[in-house]
């Protein structure tokens, strides 16, 4: 069974490699270049970090949002209609908790967000659920409750625009914002 799966995977890799060859050898003057489907999405936190530094001109002032983004990451992602924290999310939150302990005077807002494939009111509730899942995890790690506030934006503030799972998966998120 495992061997068969591996074979399928190997075949897929070959197919992907083959199909992507003509694209990479294409002429430079083509109007629209579609990125390969299997490319890992660029983390949004980097974009926000770039924007922030571009505006302020400072680099990673300790205890700031830019510092949080650059050193531990400001966001975690959720599955469809879920507020469960997976391993990756928990690792990020562990780093965020450590970061919060380094800057004990810092207060944060946890934003809960949803993708656009749900209804408006349910997504407000789901965003609230996600923000609180993050808050409860941080509190369990010993962060004081009065340092962590929550807000839900439902599906009102997508981080990535698009009509596919790649975009939706980046929008189902919990974001830590330094107050």
């Amino acid at each position: 069974m495992l061997r068969r799966l591996f074979l399928v995977f190997a075949m897929m890799t070959v197919v992907v490699a083959c199909s992507s060859t003509p694209e990479s050898s294409g002429t430079a003057d083509e109007g629209m270049l579609t990125p390969p489907e299997d490319r890992t999405p660029i983390s949004q936190s980097d974009v926000i970090y770039d924007d922030a530094t571009a505006n302020t001109g400072t680099m990673n002032a300790p205890g700031t949002q830019e510092d949080l983004v650059a050193s531990v990451g400001d966001r975690i992602f959720f599955g469809y209609d879920s507020s469960e924290l997976d391993t990756t999310a928990r690792q990020t939150l562990d780093r965020q908790a450590a970061w919060l302990r380094t800057y004990p005077n810092t207060r944060v807002m946890i934003e809960g967000h949803a993708d656009e494939r749900g209804t408006r009111e349910y997504n407000l509730a789901l965003g609230e659920r996600r923000a609180n899942a993050v808050k409860n995890y941080l509190l369990a790690l010993g962060i004081e409750g009065n340092r962590v506030e929550t807000i839900s934006y439902g599906k009102e503030r997508p981080a990535v625009l698009g009509s596919d799972e790649t975009a939706w998966s980046r929008n189902r998120r919990g974001v830590m914002v330094v107050q």
């Binding site: 507020s83 009111e121 407000l124 509730a125 609230e128 659920r129 609180n132 808050k135 839900s152």
Partner: peptide, 24 residues
């Protein structure tokens, strides 16, 4: 957070959701 408001048929009440500690 309070949301999803709607009036009662006589207009005397608002029915809505409130979310607290992640529960709505």
């Amino acid at each position: 957070m309070t949301f999803a408001p709607r009036f009662s048929p006589d207009g005397h009440k608002v029915i809505m959701s409130m979310a607290k500690n992640g529960n709505t």
